[in-house]
């Protein structure tokens, strides 16, 4: 399954870069996150509650950031498993400085899901994941705005 989208942050690229790489911020921003910690260089471990239509459950997993080019781009590798199935994905994130103190984020990726999430939830997976990303990014944007103001 493909995931693709764009988002405009109301802040400079450097600020955005800091925020999107900060585990503490991420753990509060991503909806349903129970735990999100940095465990090694560019490696995070987390736990997340997900509800997709009739399927809900906790996913435990790992997020690895590879080929990070601060503050322009990075690649994410996500792997999660839970009682309701599994999830595996890679995504590319690009941050574009728009010159007016806003930053455009472009993301695109491939996600593979299995188990109950796939067999019963796939019809809703697209919508749910999009809304979760949107919620998460909105939350990050609030942090970006707050940091921009305090600078």
């Amino acid at each position: 399954m493909k995931l693709e989208g764009e988002y405009v942050f109301s802040g400079a690229r450097d600020t955005v870069w800091e925020v999107v790489r900060d585990p503490e911020v991420l753990s509060t921003a991503l909806p349903g996150t129970e735990k999100f910690v940095l465990v090694g260089e560019n490696e995070y471990e987390g736990k997340m509650n997900v509800r997709i239509g009739p399927v809900s459950g906790t996913f435990g997993g790992k997020l690895t950031v590879t080929t990070a080019v601060p503050p322009e781009s990075y690649t994410l590798i996500v792997e999660g498993t839970g009682k309701v199935g599994f999830l595996k994905g890679t995504g590319d994130v690009v941050l574009v400085d728009q010159g007016d103190d806003t930053t455009l984020m472009k993301y695109s990726g491939e996600v593979q899901i299995g188990g109950r999430v796939a067999s019963v939830g796939q019809r809703l997976f697209d919508t749910v994941s999009k809304s979760m990303i949107k919620q998460g990014l909105d939350q990050l944007n609030t942090v970006v705005q707050a940091r921009t103001k305090s600078d």
Binding site: S119, V120, R123
Partner: peptide, 14 residues
């Protein structure tokens, strides 16, 4: 089925 052999419509809703 998707490419990884997952059945994507395993319910009578789908």
């Amino acid at each position: 089925f998707d490419e990884s052999g997952q059945l994507l419509n395993a319910s009578l809703a789908d």
